[in-house]
Amino acid sequence: MKILAIDTSTLVMGVAILEEKRVLGELITNSHKKHSIRLMPAMAQLFEELELTLEDIDLLAVTKGPGSYTGIRIGVTTAKTLSWAHQIPLYGISTLAVLAENGFHFNGWIVPLLDARRERVYVGIYQREVEQLRAIYSPQIMTITKLLDILKKQEKPVLFLGDDCERYAEQIKMHLSNQAKFGTLAENIPKPSQLGYLAWGKLQQKEAPETEQFAPDYLQLTQAEVNWLKQHNHGGKHEN
């Protein structure tokens, strides 16, 4: 059983190939984006170095968001197409769930976050239970203030993960002081190997793989839809 994992949902671009019990290889960059140019050549390189082809792959994994809208779509479209062309089952997994795995051994709440601009974050809250992480708060968008309020009430140690935590570090320390811990540099970037591992878990659990209609989980409506709804809720009396 070999697994190919693809993540292009943030500034990080990652490709990994795993066996059930072993990471065979992974390529990660955390620099300029250009994921659309670099993803396929990176994947081709990884296959070549491992002397494997797509024929050897039995399972596909992709991050389905949140993150950069365009980035997520590049990964999802690529994964969906590979899955369809070779009839390989595919699982879409939250970028935040992948990032949370970097804090697997932490005793307390694991809080992976991505900046969503305007003082809002994409965030999930995870905790280890027996041999896996469970989402206490599933991935969602909320203001940093609301997140800090939730965490403060719990009085548990909290591990923040993700490069974007830097942006809110002052605020976090002010609200949570010693309760807050931060990931190491390596723990702050989502690993495609973790993504592949999570997909393998889903297969073990016999979860249904994605269909060809599979689409990203942006966690937000488009701005045009938000504006439209605003206008039409105020003018609700005139609408049927």
């Binding site: 396929m40 994947m43 797509l54 969906k80 197409t81 062309a85 070779h86």
Partner: peptide, 9 residues
Amino acid sequence: SAAKALSFA
């Protein structure tokens, strides 16, 4: 993205 993945596959 779809065309490239298909070409690669």
